[in-house]
């Protein structure tokens, strides 16, 4: 995320509550730019979104600029942008991805990203095409620690 204007001390990232129904693992990884990706290691498919911290910093979100289905992006590419009343921030993928579709709900109800950034307010459906060039992916614990350093 770019252009975050100021820091916020309270952080409330939703905990992953879904239990694995299958034998392979669903990974949730975070970036220092406050994005997250979730994917399972069999299909490599999952979702991409922004964290609660990012949503809080941006304030009231009014529009999400979404990528197109079929687009492919390399680590560090901007795949879209989140616009709030206050400011805008581009969102960057930390890994190679292909876009499988977007969250239609947030087109009509962008405030979902504020309300539930890790669940209902996910942004785009992705397939991780390679983890080879992944940059600085953090586990949830590492991300929480990183957030503490911003306070």
């Amino acid at each position: 995320m770019l252009n975050i204007l100021f820091k916020r001390s309270t952080v409330n990232v939703a905990k992953k509550t879904t239990l694995p129904l299958r034998t392979f693992a669903v990974h949730t990884k975070f970036t220092k730019e406050h994005e997250w990706i979730k994917y399972d290691d069999e299909t490599m498919e999952g979702q991409f979104g922004i964290t609660q911290h990012a949503a809080n910093e941006l304030g009231d979100i009014v529009f999400v600029d979404l990528p197109f289905e079929g687009d492919t992006f390399a680590p560090g590419d901007a795949i879209g942008a989140v616009e709030s009343v206050k400011t805008s921030a581009q969102i960057y993928t930390p890994v190679d991805v292909e876009i499988l579709g977007n969250n239609q709900e947030i087109e009509a109800t962008p405030e979902l990203v504020n309300q539930s950034p890790m669940e209902d307010g996910w942004i785009t459906k992705i397939k991780v095409t390679s983890l080879d060039n992944a940059k600085d992916l953090l586990s949830e614990e590492e991300y929480q620690k990183f957030l503490k350093t911003l306070e």
Partner: peptide, 23 residues
């Protein structure tokens, strides 16, 4: 208030309610 630099001053860009509610 959450301060930002503005015209040489430290001033709140918003308070707890947030921009939309304040507006």
């Amino acid at each position: 208030g959450k301060n930002v630099p503005f015209a040489g001053y430290e001033l709140p860009v918003q308070y707890k309610a947030g921009l939309m509610k304040e507006h």
